[in-house]
Design a protein around this nucleic acid. Structure first.
Length: 514
RNA sequence: GGCGCUAUCGUCUAGGGGUUAGGACGUGAGAUUCUCAAUCUUAAAACCCGGGUUCGAUUCCCGGUAGCGCUACCA
């Protein structure tokens, strides 16, 4: 290995949606590679044929791309594109022959041996270990098998697994986030490399084995992955040593936990990248949040980073070893931050899909508003007005509901509303308002509206909250919402669009009539 | 049971032998506004426990405790 350019990999198995924990691992790998001008490799661990599915691989690639990550070697950056890089294939299912070849070599060189122990026999050993409170390790019994006996077993067609011979020296490795780590050889014991079969080529190699071969052959210099692999690492170190390969640097990232300190899972809420996308989170918010989950800027203060800023600031040395609890509130804060920074066209394009089913009358296609549609300008104002009220875009339709669907009866039924309306002054105010609406013709401009409010204030002596609250309820069904100056023209203009939106006067009359 | 990893406000973290232990999210209060959201100001809020080393430990060492992981012919 003469090349000193760092090479890192992200090696997910396509057995489900990309989880935020794995996404963070991918991000840290990518940031490290981009920071130091190294190579980032995507490798698909699809050896679990029963659970691996092509659609998950396609989705995985989409999700990584959505986050803004790309890779220098691995599957194509889009579905159907050829593999990139000269260390392939990059799907483990295509590398089976390579593993078998290496197993032959290990056996020939005496660093591995065939184990004919049956599951039942091993179970007995394990049960004894538990009873004696000792470590549950393999005795190494089949190491001592004479070649005559091996031949006899083979001839009899007895299935065997292949085990690695572990020496007596402690197994050590260096971890960029944990420092030096050491395991006693006895605690590791001879691990299985290839599962039971009657021939080596028929045997299915085990995860720890193929990962190590792939990492070595792909010349990975820094293995950055979840810390649930720490205990697997000594076994992998032993494999590197058995082949005479250089042991890489490691960086084990802490687990992401839920609020209850258990591993983050679906019951904690959204966990997959595609779910966050569907909820209307911005990729830059998610990337920023994930970067902060286990890593902090050198100044200890900066919280917002673009991907480019991250590639300049990131370092593995500043990654925290302790587990982190996923905080939806902070993610929401970052998303609100980036939503504010987002340009209008993009927010609009991202928001529209959430209205597709809510407002079928809209002149919408999947791509957005029909060009030149008179809905377009109005919709932009609507989104802009509502944007400060949401954490993520899928909350928009709910916030917009009072504009599209006006329901006086349920507005009155609402407990808080009822309390406000029950005050005597509220009834007076609404009576005055209705009287003005009856004699009014033409659109209600903010100026007209302000004039009414001024008159009512003068006529009734009601002012402030007691004046505006009931009016707001009569107009929108809610006692809170955007400022009237913007809300009123939006409603009035909306009423002319043929979307079934009621105008100001209609609203007040209907409300009075209930 | 064995082995390993981890331990600073509720949460994410900065820091590090002597600091008013810093920042951010969230929370409380205030300002603004008809209201809510946003925004600004402000407040409360932390070094797991016990030993040792030291003039001094939250920081270094040891032990305990707790959480998590591995302990598979899962990945």
């Amino acid at each position: 290995m003469t090349d000193t350019t760092p090479r890192v990999r992200f090696a997910p198995s396509p057995t489900g949606l990309l989880h935020v924990g794995n996404a963070r691992t991918a991000l840290y790998n990518w940031l490290f590679a981009r920071r130091v001008g190294g190579t980032f490799i995507l490798r698909i661990e699809d050896t679990d044929l029963e659970r691996s599915e092509a659609r998950y691989e396609t989705q995985l690639i989409k999700d990584l791309r959505w986050l803004g990550l790309d890779w220098d070697e691995g599957p194509g950056l889009a579905a159907g594109e050829p593999e990139m890089g000269s260390f392939g294939p990059y799907r483990q299912s295509k590398r089976l022959a390579i593993y078998a070849e290496h197993t032959e070599r290990l056996l020939a060189e005496g660093n591995a041996y065939r184990c004919f122990c049956t599951t039942e026999e091993l179970e007995v050993e394990r049960a004894r270990a538990v009873a004696e409170h000792g470590p549950q390790v393999y005795s190494g019994r089949c190491r001592a098998l004479q070649s005559a006996e091996i031949e006899k077993n083979l001839a009899a067609g007895k299935p065997f697994s292949v085990r690695l011979k572990i020496g007596t020296e402690p197994l050590r490795f260096h971890d960029l986030v944990h420092g030096p780590v050491e395991f006693a050889a006895e605690a590791v014991s001879d691990p299985i490399l290839v599962r039971s079969a009657t021939s080596i080529s028929a045997g299915v190699p085990v995860y720890n084995y193929v990962v190590t071969i792939d990492d070595a052959l792909m010349q990975i210099t820094h293995v950055i992955r979840g810390d649930d692999h720490i205990s697997n690492t000594p076994r992998q170190v032993a494999i590197y040593q058995a082949f005479g390969w250089k042991v890489p640097e490691f960086a084990h990232l802490s687990t992401i936990l839920g609020a209850d300190r258990e591993r983050l899972s679906k019951r904690h809420g959204a966990t997959s990248i595609s779910t966050f996308r569907k909820m209307g989170y911005l990729p830059e918010a998610l990337v920023n949040y994930l970067a902060l989950l286990g890593w902090g800027a050198e100044d200890g203060k900066t919280e917002t980073f673009t991907l480019e800023e991250l590639t300049r600031a990131f370092s593995l040395e500043r990654v925290t070893p302790s587990p982190a609890i996923f905080d939806f509130d902070k993610l929401n804060w970052l998303n609100r931050h980036y939503l504010k920074e987002c340009n209008t066209d993009r927010v609009l394009a991202l928001s529209l899909p959430f209205f597709l089913n809510e407002v079928p009358q809209l002149h919408l296609t999947k791509e957005g508003l029909v060009a030149g549609s008179r809905h377009s300008e109005w919709f932009e104002r609507l989104i802009q007005l509502l944007l400060p009220y949401v954490d993520h875009l899928d909350q928009l339709p709910v916030k917009a509901a009072p504009i599209f669907a006006f329901d006086p009866a349920s507005a009155r039924a609402n407990e808080e509303n009822a309390a406000i309306l029950a005050v005597g002054s509220a009834r007076t105010v609404l009576t005055e308002l209705a009287a003005r609406v009856r004699v009014h013709s033409g659109p209600v401009t903010p100026e007209v509206f302000k004039g009414w409010m001024k008159e009512i204030k003068a006529a009734t002596g009601v002012k402030g909250e007691e004046l505006f609250h009931p009016v707001r309820i009569a107009l929108t069904g809610a006692h809170s919402g955007p400022v009237f100056d913007k809300l009123i023209p939006l409603i009035e203009d909306g009423a002319t669009l043929g979307l079934g939106i009621l105008g100001i006067c209609d609203r007040i009359e209907r409300f009075a009539g209930v």
